[in-house]
Simulated scan of single mutants.
Amino acid sequence: MLELKDINVSYGAIHAIHDVSLTVNDGEIVSLIGANGAGKTTILHTITGLKKPSSGIISYDGKDLIKTEASKIITLGMAHVPEGRHIFPSMTVFENLEMGAYIRNNREEISESINEVFERFPRLKERKKQLAGTLSGGEQQMLAVGRALMSKPKIILMDEPSMGLSPLLVKEIFAIIREVHRQEITVLLVEQNAKMALSIADRAYVLETGHISMSGDAKELLNNEKVKKAYLGL
Score class of each variant (00 low, 15 high):
residue 179 E to R: 15
residue 61 D to P: 04
residue 136 S to P: 14
residue 11 Y to Q: 06
residue 2 L to W: 15
residue 42 T to G: 01
residue 201 A to F: 14
residue 166 S to Q: 08
residue 204 A to H: 05
residue 119 E to H: 12
residue 30 V to N: 13
residue 201 A to C: 08
residue 158 M to D: 06
residue 82 P to H: 13
residue 99 M to S: 07
residue 157 L to D: 11
residue 98 E to Y: 10
residue 27 G to V: 02
residue 23 T to G: 12
residue 88 F to K: 08
residue 44 L to S: 13
residue 232 L to P: 11
residue 133 G to N: 14
residue 205 Y to P: 13
residue 185 I to V: 03
residue 73 I to F: 07
residue 58 I to Q: 10
residue 7 I to W: 06
residue 120 R to A: 09
residue 153 P to D: 09
residue 146 G to P: 02
residue 120 R to S: 12
residue 173 I to T: 14
residue 46 T to C: 13
residue 196 M to W: 01
residue 234 L to A: 08
residue 68 T to P: 10
residue 3 E to T: 09
residue 3 E to C: 08
residue 17 I to N: 06
residue 178 R to L: 15
residue 16 A to I: 00
residue 175 A to I: 03
residue 80 H to V: 07
residue 82 P to T: 12
residue 103 I to P: 02
residue 103 I to Q: 02
residue 118 F to C: 05
residue 213 S to P: 05
residue 155 I to Y: 10
residue 202 D to G: 15
residue 33 I to M: 00
residue 105 N to S: 04
residue 157 L to G: 14
residue 77 G to W: 14
residue 138 G to W: 07
residue 137 G to L: 02
residue 145 V to S: 03
residue 98 E to K: 10
residue 86 H to V: 01
residue 87 I to V: 13
residue 32 L to I: 13
residue 64 D to K: 05
residue 44 L to T: 07
residue 151 S to E: 08
residue 233 G to R: 07
residue 170 V to A: 11
residue 71 S to Q: 14
residue 182 R to T: 06
residue 101 A to D: 11
residue 68 T to A: 03
residue 190 V to H: 15
residue 193 N to I: 00
residue 156 I to V: 15
residue 163 M to W: 02
residue 187 V to W: 08
residue 83 E to I: 07
residue 175 A to P: 08
residue 125 K to D: 07
residue 221 L to R: 07
residue 98 E to D: 08
residue 158 M to N: 08
residue 175 A to W: 07
residue 71 S to W: 12
residue 84 G to N: 13
residue 107 R to T: 05
residue 179 E to Y: 14
residue 65 L to E: 04
residue 6 D to A: 07
residue 122 P to R: 02
residue 95 E to I: 01
residue 95 E to Y: 09
residue 48 T to L: 00
residue 131 L to C: 03
residue 145 V to I: 15
residue 107 R to L: 03
residue 107 R to S: 06
residue 9 V to K: 06
residue 184 E to C: 04
residue 119 E to L: 06
residue 206 V to M: 14
residue 232 L to W: 12
residue 46 T to S: 15
residue 115 N to K: 15
residue 198 L to S: 10
residue 150 M to Q: 15
residue 18 H to P: 06
